[in-house]
Design a protein around this nucleic acid. Sequence first.
DNA 1: GCATTCAATTGATAAATGTCAACTGCTCGC
DNA 2: GCGAGCAGTTGACATTTATCAATTGAATGC
Lengths: 236, 236
Amino acid sequence: MPDSHLPEIRALHLFSDMEEESFQRLVRASYVQNFPPQIELISEGDPSDFLHILLTGSVDLFSTWNDRETSMATVRPVSTFILAATVKDAPYLMSARTMEKSRIMLIPSQDVRDVFEMDTKFALSIVDELASCYRGVIKNTKDLKLRTSLERLANYLLRQQVRAGGGETFELETEKRRLASVLGMTSENLSRAFKGLKPYGVEVKGNKITIRDQEDLIGFAKPNPLIDGRTQPSTP
Amino acid sequence: MPDSHLPEIRALHLFSDMEEESFQRLVRASYVQNFPPQIELISEGDPSDFLHILLTGSVDLFSTWNDRETSMATVRPVSTFILAATVKDAPYLMSARTMEKSRIMLIPSQDVRDVFEMDTKFALSIVDELASCYRGVIKNTKDLKLRTSLERLANYLLRQQVRAGGGETFELETEKRRLASVLGMTSENLSRAFKGLKPYGVEVKGNKITIRDQEDLIGFAKPNPLIDGRTQPSTP
DNA sequence: GCATTCAATTGATAAATGTCAACTGCTCGC
DNA sequence: GCGAGCAGTTGACATTTATCAATTGAATGC
């Protein structure tokens, strides 16, 4: 199923090195679909039938237990998600829902597994991708276990500032309640945490954040490349 | 460097499928070393020069930030650790120290990377291993974000019971303060958490645990295969 | 056997975080 | 323009967790 996003997909580092023939096989087997907002694409526990590639829109990966829910990550275009479940042929550990209208490419997991057994370069890309993802989750665990929620927020803001170009003022690209969940706290606590960062020069107006004194905030947040370092790969 | 542990290493699923020639190359390049207890083998941030394989003893993987420290995992024989850093040729995200006298095999990371580019079966095993590890960390994140410390302890005990053979009484194979750190809490809190599980039939005597009424504890802990499911691979 | 040492426990207290309810303020549709 | 709906905020309070200090208890060395 051809799609105008093909060059972009081919450029993902997961696919950029593979043989053209293998890539074509994946593309032929796949299909592309549009989803409305708030659709649950995947439920944890389901068999992993497809590797998903988000072409446009955004997707929330979340997990539930005992009537509680937590947001694990946000997927943004163009990137793949649930790669690990696909290669293991194991049930999804996370659920996924569209946050907005989204266009998604679905590649049958069996084809992915078949191809990576034949195409060494593809296998190597998968190794690289999985290793990146693993390291990303380890960093997240360190963030959760070693920092208070105030510290997590401070470091999040500094990372976000960089991603947004480094200007004094930038936008959160996430709803605050989702951000709270990602950071492992409640909305109420996040709201108070923003207040708690005011002494360090953080000003909040809607989803616009201004960091008046970056040095000061860094002094509090103590960012560390082994936790906050940029390794934002596509999420498997 | 030949070693009596070679058959065991060969049997690790990371190495079991690879070509004999590739395996021999790794073995020739590697060396085996004994370490006393409490030796820091690896410091986070260091370049990842070697893939480590724990032959005997035990190793604690931990991380630090801002004078705080947390235990991320315990490695037990025979298994590899810090595979992800090795394949990415990136700095270690965790430190490692021996908990007791340990025998460790070290394979130069460069050789691992060279071999996995040539030996497809080895590459596929690495994919499998990394995917397992990734899923393991995701489960851990869900445990941390969705459960209170009392719930984490309850589920830990149930998992441990299974690993120990399923009997009513079994032993913790971890020092309590390390267990506390692994579960993301303080020693004091762990001590009180054990008390908090008494109403559910948990009895503690030193490092011997007895679960009088498993049904009752399960009712409280609500274990879930997507969090507690057995996927204990060697830790990369 | 006894003193030393250190993990583990306990109590008292403080800090962090969650819960519940009420309220604010904005957006969106009519 | 107005009101419904909803994310976000605030306050009061409860719960969870950490901290600090003191004590217990078990293992170890001499």
